[in-house]
């Protein structure tokens, strides 16, 4: 049963990963990437890494890919323009692709990550919690690398904000703090008008008499 599930999701993962790079429409490619993330999350679930699987879905599927799609949908990608230099650059592209493949293969290929290098992972008991196991490791053994990662992320945030937060004196924009601080009296003037009898109605009434 588990083997069948594994092969189904692996096949989905590889197929959709292939579709990401072969499909013409960039929006569809992004959707296939979502499917790839989803299938890999399912494979992680089989490894009893439920925390990682669900975080993968929340972060990559739920946030990163949404923003990615956001950008891809807004861009008007001209496919003919993109394909113009295809034949001319093909030899160079093939060489670069092969070099990349060789490098990746040497690092994560069968030599290092083959099945023969690892024992079959043993089943955990029913009360095993992937969350607390990860937490224990992250905050004790790997606390420094964890903190370094956090600082790098912080630097990323600061950099991203400082890139967009440039002064543009000539643009018009709303000052939200002024809008929030506004009081009724600033916008609305209540004019006191003395009440007086309606002359015409009285006249009409007298006429009718």
């Amino acid at each position: 049963m588990e083997t069948i599930v594994f092969y189904v999701f692996s096949a989905f993962m590889i197929l959709s990963a292939l579709m990401v790079i072969t499909v013409h429409n960039p929006v569809r490619a992004a959707f296939f990437l979502v499917l790839t993330f989803f299938s890999s999350a399912a494979v992680w679930l089989l490894l009893e890494a439920e925390f990682l699987a669900i975080i993968l879905i929340i972060v990559y599927v739920g946030a990163v890919m949404v923003l990615f799609l956001f950008v891809v949908m807004m861009l008007d990608v001209n496919l003919a323009e993109l394909k113009k230099g295809f034949v001319k650059n093909l030899p160079l592209a093939v060489i670069v692709a092969l070099a990349m493949f060789a490098m990746i293969f040497m690092v994560v290929g069968g030599e290092q990550f083959g099945v023969q290098n690892f024992a079959v992972p043993e089943r955990h008991a029913a009360d095993y919690s992937n969350v607390s196991a990860l937490g224990q490791l992250l905050y004790t053994e790997y606390v420094y690398s964890f903190e370094i990662a956090a600082v790098i992320l912080l630097v990323g945030i600061v950099a991203a904000i400082s890139l967009t937060l440039r002064r543009r004196p000539n643009t018009r924009h709303q000052k939200v703090e002024d809008q929030v601080a506004v009081k009724g009296a600033d916008r609305l003037r209540v004019v006191k008008v003395e009440s007086q009898p309606r002359k015409h109605t009285i006249d009409n009434a007298e006429v009718k008499k």
Binding site: F51, I54, V61, G62
Partner: peptide
């Protein structure tokens, strides 16, 4: 064990 995260994941996929 991760029910809370699962619900967050489902609502974020719903978008």
């Amino acid at each position: 064990n991760v029910a809370l995260l699962y619900i967050l994941a489902m609502t974020s996929v719903g978008v």
